[in-house]
């Protein structure tokens, strides 16, 4: 059924090359997201979640010293066969992204309205500022911002973190992308605000029918969020399956360790996995797909 896959990653390998030699950090990742599906990528710090999402986004490939092997297909087209320009064309139009710290991710010297304008120019280069702002105000109301006009007229530093996160969600979805990447969204925010905005994001993604790749180190956060989960450990996927299966019947020792860490995790900190264990290096466990 490759036809309804928005994203398909096969045997993805990534290595950084520098004067000291080559370090491989992804050792053959397989990952797929169906259209409209929400998928979570979970693993401890340094396991390679962010680099995976940057490869899907297409920016990692342009970093000097980076070697990428394997296939990344977006809507059936291999990213590696695209030119730099074609890959850039996808970004902001077909693929967009939400970041960890919304306030830092918004340009400090542009008003929110100006940023919305720039983002919408990606889809419609001739759009005028007032038309862009009107559309932006609409989507800001959808993310439950009441004084949208004032927000559009502000700079990020004038708004609260939660407000900026809502702005970021609106900005990410305004061009109706088909795939949304969220790399630990809002972990820089406090827990209540984070869960509020995540709930909002879930709602919006469902409404817009956007596929989602949700990156987190916290299995707890993704429970409500994902249809399927990939568990990642040191550059490998160690277990994958439907959310319920992962939670009810974790099979890989590393997944069990992650799950055991959840209760202490409501603060959103980095999981304290007991220690490194040989068992974590066991081969991947694939839960059977259940049709819903």
């Amino acid at each position: 059924m490759p036809a309804d896959r928005i994203l398909e990653v096969c045997d993805l390998r990534l290595a950084f090359r520098n004067w000291a030699g080559t370090t491989e950090v992804l050792h053959g990742i397989d990952l797929a997201i169906a259209k409209g599906e929400r998928v979570a990528l979970v693993g401890e710090s340094g396991s390679g979640k962010s680099v995976t999402s940057r490869i899907v986004l297409g920016t990692m490939q342009d970093v000097p010293g980076v070697q990428v092997a394997g296939k990344v297909r977006f809507d059936g087209t291999d990213l590696a066969e695209m030119t730099f320009k074609e890959r850039r064309r996808l970004r902001g139009r077909e693929i967009s992204m939400i970041f960890q710290d919304p306030t830092m991710a918004l340009n400090p010297v542009f008003r929110i309205g100006a940023l919305f304008h720039e983002v919408q120019k990606r889809r419609d280069p001739t759009i005028r500022r007032d038309a862009a702002c009107a559309r932006a105000a609409e989507i800001l109301r959808e993310v439950a911002i009441e004084d949208a006009e004032r927000v559009l007229d502000s700079y990020a530093f004038q708004l609260s973190g939660g407000m900026n996160q809502r702005v970021m969600i609106g900005m990410a979805l305004i061009n109706r992308p088909r795939l949304l990447l969220a790399d630990e969204p809002g972990t820089a925010l406090d827990v209540t605000v984070q869960s509020q905005t995540l709930e909002l994001m879930r709602h919006m993604v469902a409404q817009y029918g956007t596929s989602l790749l949700f990156v987190s180190h916290n299995l707890g956060t993704v429970r409500e969020f994902a249809d399927r989960i990939y568990v990642m450990y040191r550059g490998n996927i160690v277990e994958r399956g439907p959310t319920a299966a992962i939670f009810n019947n974790p099979r890989h020792p590393y997944t069990r360790a992650l799950l055991a860490a959840i209760p202490r995790l409501t603060g959103g900190g980095i999981p304290e996995i007991a220690e490194r264990s040989e068992a974590f290096l066991e081969p991947m466990f694939i839960h059977p797909e259940v049709t819903e």
Binding site: R91, S96, M104
Partner: peptide, 28 residues
């Protein structure tokens, strides 16, 4: 800065980034 990564993630061109998005904050 994360906001430059954001600009790239949204497909802004390197030229625009160098002339505006990264340039203006650096001017300060």
């Amino acid at each position: 800065q994360p906001h430059v990564e954001m600009a790239r993630a949204y497909g802004f061109s390197e030229r625009d980034i160098s002339r505006r998005y990264a340039f203006k904050p650096s001017l300060i």
